[in-house]
Nucleic acid binder design. Structure first.
Lengths: 255, 255
DNA sequence: CGCAGGCATTGACGCACGTCAAGGCATCCT
DNA sequence: AGGATGCCTTGACGTGCGTCAATGCCTGCG
């Protein structure tokens, strides 16, 4: 991997990253000793499909996506990962998807064999890895639920709710401006279209359909304001999914 | 859970179940001591959505599905689990989906707290759990890839390939009859339609479209014969996914 | 300053599929 | 045996969206 990504320093701030808080000091010291911080530019590929990755990583800043180039040339995005998420493959097999940066991203990487050794020695670390994977699994299932909606507007509404629910507190993507709920879309229309199993044109129409119906306001293509949260939840069809506290905080502050 | 499922005995055969082979004898003895074997009838619910499950389970026979009843009344199936798969939720939180049997099913269950204690004491068991979750994650991602195909025929082709690839060696679902590759569809059309994010009518048309084009033969609704494997793989659009050895065996025996 | 490239948007058109409705064919029960 | 039930299948119709094409806007570069 030394030919990819820019080495930007050692493990500055590793212990501040959410999953690592609370680990015992000696383990943190061992982790920091084998950790490298790297940065990637927009679109840069971190790992290729079917590669036997020699490292595992945790995202420090920005967003990565898992994707696959289909035989017919279509690009499918099967996962988005944000700050604190783990990527790579522990313990078995090659990657089935490639990993690329969406926007600027910074990651902590660990050599895979050394990380696995630590994992075997420290139950706390193995538990951390397991919780990371469970978290990914939850994300994948939420995702599939969104994909099972027939109409593009419904899938888009589902994505907007996912943004609030799962990633709202990351990089301030969901926030209250002037007592309005504002969202930053962290993807281009083309990428988001791949994510929602549709095309940019249909996605654009879906955005403007929601705007015409008064559910959202498009300030810029990447900056929207939510006008009717409950209508969006109805459209998404999964308003009863688990709502984390930071999201409930946002909602309760909407007067 | 004592009011659901039929207790059919203790842990007969637990050690024969794929994920448990190779565990140390003392651990197996402890597992067997807290294990109950239960059977469920078609459609029977094993756990409700949002329930705090008090047990974890492994499938001994048959197939379970994870599903969610949407606000608009639609049922979405987000996962199918087969022999050897783990279900339930280790270490954190309530279920986000309900679990039901698809056809007859038998499972081994363990009280969750006792199982987690064993997990903490035996690294081998924690590793087993982790591999189970990684396996589920792989399945979820393959699934999403299938769902991102626009046309129902493509998604169906993807499912048939998934059946070969991931579940072919389970319950003999994929096999060679008379030098023909035969598949057993382990789901009703309605269930499969929910799984493929479509409706039974469209699914029926997709089956017959594949038959009209000579890719498959419908012997019965649940028993099909594959005539043109490579065309199906092309349609599915993911022919380069990892192919396990049992599937390659099947293919190589097609002369 | 003007041109080029990338991205979002809008329009037109045709098709795949969701929807409603009816019919066929099993199994099961009385 | 006859009716009922449940599932698969087929038909007809309308529409959401994939597709192709053109336009507008922004950024950056010569």
């Amino acid at each position: 991997m030394d030919n990819r990504g820019n080495r930007t320093g050692q493990a500055d701030g590793l212990k501040m990253l959410h999953p690592f808080t609370g680990l015992p000091e000696p383990l943190l010291a061992e982790l920091e000793a084998i950790c490298t911080r790297r940065s990637y530019a927009h679109g840069q590929v971190i790992a290729e499909e079917m590669e036997h990755l020699t490292f595992v990583g945790f995202i420090a800043k920005g967003m990565l996506r898992m994707q696959k180039l289909q035989a017919d040339g279509r690009l499918s995005i099967v996962g988005l990962m944000v700050e604190g998420d783990m990527f790579g493959r522990v313990f078995n097999g090659p990657l089935h998807f490639s990993i690329a940066a969406t926007g600027e991203a910074e990651v902590y990487t660990f050599p895979r064999d050394a990380f696995e050794t630590l994992t075997t020695e420290w139950p706390e670390l193995e538990r951390l890895v397991m919780l990371s994977i469970l978290n990914e699994l939850d994300a994948a299932r939420e995702w599939m639920l969104i994909l099972t909606n027939y109409r593009v507007t419904e899938r888009l509404a589902g994505f907007l709710m996912l943004l609030c629910r799962r990633w709202g507190n990351v990089a301030n993507l969901a926030r209250i401006d002037d007592s309005r709920l504002s969202l930053t879309i962290p993807l281009s229309r083309a990428d988001l279209a791949h994510f929602l199993a549709t095309r940019p044109e249909s996605l654009s129409r879906a955005f403007h359909a929601l705007a015409d119906d008064g559910l959202i306001v498009l300030r810029t293509p990447y900056d929207i304001e939510i006008q009717d949260l409950s209508a969006l939840m109805d459209l998404a069809g999964s308003e009863d999914l688990f709502m984390p506290s930071h999201f409930m905080d946002l909602v309760s502050r909407l007067s």
